[in-house]
Structures are given as C-alpha cells and as structure tokens.
C-alpha cells in the first residue's frame, strides 16, 4: 500500500520534473522569440515615432502663424508679401493646385495610354525593352528637369503663345507631367498586365474588339491600381520644389482670370524653399512658412487617405497594387 503510494508519488514527481524542464525550455523559446519581436517592434515604432515627431514639430512651429494671422486670413488672403506683413497664402496654394492639376491631367493622358500601349499592343519583348527607359526617367534629378524646362520648354511656350516670358504655370505643369509620367506608366502597366487573361478571352469570345475589351474589361478591372498610381504621382507632384521654382515664374499673385495657365505663379513649396533661408528664425514669416508646410502636409494626407479608402472599398477580383 505504502509502496504503491510511494511509487505513485515518485511518478508524480518525475512527471513534475519533466513538465518543469519542458516548461523552462518553452519559456526560453518564448523569450528568444520575444527578443526578436521586441526588436522588430521597436524598429517599427521608431519609424512611426519619427513621423509623429516631424508632425508635432512642424505643427508647433506653424501654430504661432495661425494664431497671429488667423486661419481664415492665412488660407484665403489674396496677397503674399512678407515684407509688408501680408501673409495670404491663397495665391501660393492656387499656384500649387494649378501646376499639380495640370500636370496630373497631362500625365494621366500620356501615362495611362502609354501603359495600355505597352501591355496590350506591343510585343512582350519590345515592351520589356522600353519599360526600363521609361522608369529611368523617374530617376532624373529634379534640378535637371528644371534646366530642361528653363532652356527647352519655356522658350517654346513663349514662342507658341507669343508671351514675353515663358515661365508660366503651363510650363511648370508640362515639365512636372514629364516627371510624374514614369510613375504612372510603370505602376499602371504592371496592374494592366496583372489583369487575368481569362477576362480578356471571355470578352473576345463575346465578339468584343480589342479596344472594347480594354475599355470594358481591362481598364475597369485595373482601375484601383491605376488610381493608386495617379495618387502616387500626385504626391510627387505636390511635393516637387526645385523644378517648379525654376520654371513657374515665381509671382505670388492669383492669375487673372483665375484659370489663366499662361500667368506666372509661385507654388507653396517654392515659396518655402526660396524664403526660408532669408528669414530670421521664430519670426512671424518663419512661422508662416511652416504653416505653408503644414497645409501641404494636410493636403497630401487627405488625398492619400481618400485614395486608400477608394482602393479598399473596391471589390474583389480587381487588381490592386
């Protein structure tokens, strides 16, 4: 009786020991795994933290400007002349908007059709040969684009429209569109290529022509991806500084009439770039430039979020990036 109990106890003890050692080794595994996870977590957080700190800093630097000038006066004021204490940012943002809008329109027209042509009409080998060259365009530094605009595009715009100076919103939009076309072409062509062949075949079998197939099936299927490429291009366009600074004309006035693309403009990014160096730190002017930065930040954020929501809302079976 006692013996049996003893052996039972021994068994229990052994079992406990086994369990314990396995428990320890498990703990060790968990710890090692955790170490990796913690490291990754810290790294991931730091990137978010950096982003967060930038936002906080810029907001902080911009806040006095909003306080002193007033949000409405800042946003809708029609005159930007810091020398006279006038900080109306409307002409700057309108300038940015004109250039970006114009360039995105041009770039979509060129880029999406180029992508369609590459994927649907060119033989594969030729397309694969041409694509790297288009992507190379994206790598050209913006200062080079500025030069190109200054010596090549601006004189031609001046000649064509009979203007005294070729540096206009239109010139900037044209050059900027060249700069963002590669983004649209390379992403759109990948998305179009990813549209399953079976959709094309189904459409052809219904008697659709090639163009009907592209318009009716391929493009709608690829739409979210194409929209994403346009948004990326938009992001690049709105942040572009040097090239537009060189060729937009740098006049901080609203064009008259407001749709006149042949007027010179001064986009917000270019304003920050030119004026920041000559402004005493913590002056109102300095704060106002940060306020411009915050507005650019908000615009990009809103556009990106809108695009994200759009892409997320689209249904299954369509191609995303």
């Amino acid at each position: 009786m006692l013996k049996r109990d003893e052996s039972k106890f021994q068994k229990f003890l052994n079992g406990l020991k086994d369990n314990f050692s396995s428990f320890i080794s498990k703990m060790r595994q968990i710890r090692e795994k955790e170490k990796e996870e913690i490291a990754l977590f810290i790294l991931a957080c730091s990137s978010i933290l950096i982003l967060f700190l930038i936002t906080v800093f810029v907001f902080q630097a911009a806040l006095p400007a909003f306080k002193e000038i007033g949000v409405l006066d800042f946003l809708f004021g029609k005159s930007w002349s810091p020398g006279y204490g006038r900080y109306g940012a409307a002409p700057l943002f309108f300038g940015s908007f004109m250039i970006v809008f114009g360039s995105v329109i041009l770039a979509v027209a060129i880029g999406v059709f180029a992508a369609i042509f590459l994927v649907e009409y060119l033989p594969r080998g030729t397309a694969d040969f041409i694509k790297p060259f288009i992507e190379l365009l994206a790598g050209i530094p913006s200062i080079i684009w500025g030069f190109f605009g200054l010596v090549f595009v601006a004189p031609r715009v001046a000649d064509f429209f009979d203007l005294p100076v070729g540096r206009t919103a239109l010139t900037a939009a044209i050059v900027l569109s060249f700069m963002i076309v590669p983004t649209i072409v390379s992403i759109s062509s990948e998305v179009i290529e990813a549209v399953p062949q079976q959709y094309r075949r189904a459409s052809m079998a219904l008697g659709a022509t090639k163009w009907q197939t592209i318009r009716g099936v391929v493009l709608p299927t690829a739409k979210p991806g194409i929209v994403a490429s346009i948004m990326l291009a938009f992001g690049r366009a709105i942040g572009e500084t040097i090239a537009v600074l060189m060729i937009a004309g740098s006049v901080p006035l609203l064009p008259s009439p407001f749709y006149d693309y042949l007027d010179p403009v001064l986009p917000a990014t270019a304003t920050i770039a030119t004026e920041m160096g000559e402004t005493p730190a913590y002056s109102l002017h300095w704060h106002a430039l940060f306020a411009l930065g915050i507005m650019l930040f908000i615009i990009t954020f809103v556009v990106n979020t809108a695009a994200d929501i759009y892409v997320r809302r689209t249904k299954r079976g369509v191609i995303m990036v």
């Binding site: 959709y199 075949r201 189904a202 079998a205 219904l206 709608p220 299927t221 249904k315 369509v318």
Partner: peptide
C-alpha cells in the same frame, strides 16, 4: 458563343 473551363465572370 463560348464557355470556358474555369468560370470566368467579369469582376462586375
């Protein structure tokens, strides 16, 4: 008309 091996409705 033609019907294919794998059902291939359009994403519509």
């Amino acid at each position: 008309g033609m019907v294919f091996q794998k059902p291939n409705p359009f994403p519509k």
